[in-house]
């Protein structure tokens, strides 16, 4: 009966409760003059937008100063823009072989991540439910999973190349095997943490297994699940760049590797900006979907 708290989670399985602010300001602010509204908008822009913009500006300035000397090994920001102007202004360029615009490289990487990640989500959630619900499955599978999940993603690549004999499925497999563990483990922790009270309510109401799954298990587990999904997408993006450096073809990882081989350091820096921004957007979109689905649930 006691829900055994064998937490085997990666980072914190509990999603931070989305703070709901509805209760905090019950009074609707009275209509105010246009002037004061403009002032308020101005203040919020100043406090929200100004700090990051300022920080970035300062960092760029610092970088510019450090990299300005003629002996510097790395280009300064202005030099990056100058060197790589072509790829900056034409991300949609269609050329031969790997001579494509950055947009196409990024989307090739995203498609690989998409396949591997969706597969990982399906398998991870499936096995997570199994491990969470069945103590027997937990006993049998958990030790295996605990060992497998510590294997670094790229260590799988040679094996999967041997198995698939092709770069594309191998990269997808690496993404899958990288992101499946946090999804699986967090889902099972979420299910194990469903309070006994909710299970008792279900029993008293005689909910069918399907009703239990949709009305209790899914809503109770979604916050944990999305913690796992969010860690998973981050790891996928980390792994794809490295994997693509090894398998070649179109993709942001190989673009970086190719630029390095051609000593186009400025191109590498532009590509890194893309990698960072896309990684950030991926993380935020999974978080946003999770937030949307857990409205009102996590706050207890």
């Amino acid at each position: 009966m006691v829900h055994s708290a064998r937490v085997l989670a990666l980072p914190n399985p509990k999603i931070p409760a989305p703070t709901r602010q509805t209760a905090l300001h019950p009074l609707v602010p009275k209509p105010v003059s246009v002037l004061s509204r403009v002032v308020r908008l101005g203040t919020s822009v100043a406090t929200q937008v100004a700090p990051p913009v300022l920080t970035i500006a300062l960092l760029l300035l610092l970088w510019q100063m450090l990299a300005s000397s003629p002996t510097s090994a790395l280009p300064s920001p202005l030099k990056v823009i100058d060197d790589s102007w072509e790829i900056i202004v034409d991300p949609f360029k269609v050329g031969n072989g790997i001579d494509q615009g950055l947009f196409w490289h990024v989307s090739a990487s995203l498609i690989r991540v998409g396949y591997g990640y969706i597969l990982a989500a399906i398998v991870g959630i499936g096995f997570g439910v199994l491990l969470g619900q069945s103590t027997l499955a937990m006993r049998g599978l958990d030790p295996v999973f605990q060992v497998l999940r510590t294997i670094p993603p790229l260590a799988w690549l040679p094996l999967s190349l041997a198995a698939f004999r092709d770069g594309q499925p191998s990269a997808i497999f690496v993404i899958f095997i990288t992101s499946v563990w946090p999804i699986l483990i967090n889902t099972s922790v979420g299910i194990r943490n469903i309070p006994q009270d909710y299970r008792n309510v279900a029993k008293v109401l005689r909910l069918s297994p399907i009703e239990f799954f949709t009305r209790i298990m899914v809503p109770a587990t979604v916050p944990h699940m999305f913690t796992g999904l969010r860690i998973g997408i981050g790891l996928s993006w980390l792994a794809i760049v490295a994997a693509e450096m090894l398998i070649g073809g179109v993709g942001i990882g190989f673009f970086i590797w190719d630029a390095w081989n051609s000593s186009l350091i400025s191109d590498i820096i532009v590509a890194l900006v893309y990698v960072g921004v896309v990684g950030f957007l991926l993380d935020r979109s999974i978080a946003a979907i999770g937030h949307l689905l857990t409205r009102g649930t996590a706050a207890q």
């Binding site: 009270d197 209790i216 009102g296």
Partner: peptide, 13 residues
Amino acid sequence: RAVVFQNHSLLPW
């Protein structure tokens, strides 16, 4: 045999 549990056990979602 309906039960009212000590900590209400309402489903928060």
